[in-house]
Design a protein around this nucleic acid. Structure first.
Length: 492
RNA sequence: CGGGGCGUAGCGUAGCCCGGUUAUCGCGCCUGCUUUGGGAGCAGGAGGUCGCAAGUUCGAAUCUUGCCGCCCCGACCA
């Protein structure tokens, strides 16, 4: 067990924090609730971003960038959305500082420099974007408008956690406009599928696609679709959302178009986003007490090579061989690092790269040079083996693929074994306390019942799964009739 | 904003209750030698506004008051 990391059994929250800090993903900053994303963590985010960006473009979207600041009058135009975010908005009220006459060397806000209209720091960009779309859309020929932006947003959270909930975070937000409701719904579902595919295939985290209940819905949306993932402590985590906004924003910002028959109508909208929160999901889904476990497809480093030498005379031999391996692996498109740094001993490096979750480690020494072998260790299972240098690249490629599969399968098995059906309230409470995970139970469909269950158990309805099986039953709490089971869980 | 914990070298800490030489130890760092197949060993060395401010006192890391910051739990939320 690692000397550096609190075990999951001891303190799950602390384990998570340790992984982020010791794994060099991020650091605390001088700003409360805001983190510094360190190069290793940012490389991970960049890999995720690059894959998503490609998928967005493959589905016809273009990137653009809108302002960080939203004039308050624009922000409040769509009432439900504005209300939903009002409590967590940072607001710019002044545009200048000046020297403090009573306190030399200090600055104060210049009361003379008050803005006529306050600027809201975007918690999301619907307002500024729809205000702009109004100018871009006149005819059905301008539709669909398919735009994404990569940006930072600010939500003044009371309590923050590295990656999972920070006051400022990075994300992408897609904002599309369509001529018909059907087309907008299709877009909403399509992007949900993109997210699910990305999270499952690249992050190796299985998700459940579903629809949110009214109380969990995005403020201003008609329907919120989501992907829900399950963490190792049995808590659920919303990994992405895709919203069908109906004509709410079009009406609020007066965005109309002429159809083929020259009839004016409001456009139909969607928005969808995933954030740096995904990094937190990734960490909690796979990692163990020795550190991070990163899926090969998005790991910043896929392979690390550590030479083991005795005395400096033979070091050149090993260096030459190591560089040869790097060349071969790079040629095969593998992200690889040869760590021949003399400051650290092999054992230290082994532990270090395990902590950082590098999927495969190759170690070799003089003994290996003689036998034409290398030692390879996979991070996910810690399994060690000695293989021939010949065909090394093919073997590594296969291994990386196997690791990707294995960690997905492991997460899937955990997830599947933690979806539990119950029809008894007593068991429902017991399951939440003792087993965790998703609980499939009947619900009478009212917000009051949902709220009551949340009060009693801290569990919320994570989603109503798409293509849910219809089944007559009685609400777990009230006993009133229900047509289908929904998924409850305690969540991040 | 409530409840709990904590602030001493880059990191982790002892000392605080019961004030008293030069503030403890480990890791890391620097120099040298030996090492290198799972977080190296020996020797020498550098590194401190004891979170900040005021107070009590001959004397404060230690006592008092105020403030600041962080972590964990809760309310809010993605």
């Amino acid at each position: 067990m690692s000397k550096e990391i609190t075990s999951r059994a001891t303190d799950y929250s602390q384990w998570y924090n340790d992984l982020i800090i010791k794994g060099s993903l991020a650091d605390y900053s001088a700003v409360r609730g805001c983190m510094v994303i360190k190069p290793y963590g940012f490389a991970l985010w960049e890999n995720m971003r690059d894959v998503l960006d490609r998928m967005f473009k493959e589905t016809g979207h273009e990137n653009a960038y809108f302002p960080l600041f939203v004039p308050k009058s624009l922000f409040e135009a769509e009432e439900k959305n504005a209300e939903g975010f009002a409590k967590e908005c940072a607001v710019v009220t002044h545009y200048r500082l000046k020297g403090d006459t009573e306190n030399k060397g200090k600055l104060i806000v210049d009361p003379e420099a008050k803005l006529e209209e306050e600027l809201v720091v975007r918690p999301t960009s619907e307002a500024i974007i729809w205000n702009t779309y109004k100018n871009w859309i006149q005819s059905y020929r301008d539709l669909p408008l398919l735009i994404n932006q990569w940006a930072n947003v600010v939500r003044w959270e009371m309590r923050t956690r590295l990656f999972l909930r920070t006051a400022e975070f990075l994300w992408q937000e897609g904002h599309t406009a369509h001529a018909t409701a059907e087309e907008a719904v299709a877009e909403t579902v399509q992007m949900l599928d993109v997210y699910a595919k990305f999270v499952e295939e690249y992050m190796a985290v299985p998700v459940i696609k579903g629809v949110k209940t009214e109380s969990e819905r995005f403020a201003g949306a008609v329907d919120t679709y989501c992907i829900e993932a399950l963490m190792q402590d049995g808590k659920a985590l919303q990994a992405g959302t895709s919203h069908f906004l109906g004509q709410n924003f079009a009406k609020a910002f007066d965005v109309k178009f002429s159809d083929k028959d020259n009839k004016l109508d409001y456009v139909w909208a969607t928005s969808w986003g995933v954030s740096t929160r995904l990094v937190g999901a990734l960490v909690m889904a796979h990692s163990d007490d020795d550190g991070l476990i990163l899926p090969p497809k998005i790991a910043p480093l896929q392979v690390v090579i550590v030479p083991i030498y005795k005395g400096n005379d033979k070091k050149d031999l090993l260096d030459a061989k190591g560089k040869e391996f790097v060349q071969q692996l790079k040629a095969a498109g593998i992200r690889v690092k040869f760590d021949n740094n003399d400051n650290a001993r092999p054992g230290w490096k082994f532990a270090e790269y395990e902590m950082k979750g590098v999927p495969v480690r190759i170690a070799f020494g003089l003994r290996d040079l003689e036998n034409n072998t290398v030692e390879i260790v996979r991070r996910d299972t810690k399994e060690k083996s000695s293989i021939s240098m010949h065909g090394l690249v093919e073997n590594i490629v296969k291994l990386l693929d196997g690791i990707q599969q294995n960690i997905y399968n492991k997460a899937l098995a955990y997830r599947d074994s933690h979806i539990t059906k119950t029809d008894s309230w007593e068991e429902f409470e017991k399951l939440l306390d003792e087993k965790g995970g998703f609980i499939a139970a009947h619900w009478d469909g009212t917000a009051e019942t949902e709220e009551a269950i949340k009060e009693k158990t801290k569990a919320t309805i994570r989603c109503i799964p798409l293509n849910n099986e219809m089944e007559e039953g009685k609400c777990i709490l009230t006993g009133k009739p229900s047509k289908q089971r929904v998924l409850f869980a305690r969540a991040y």
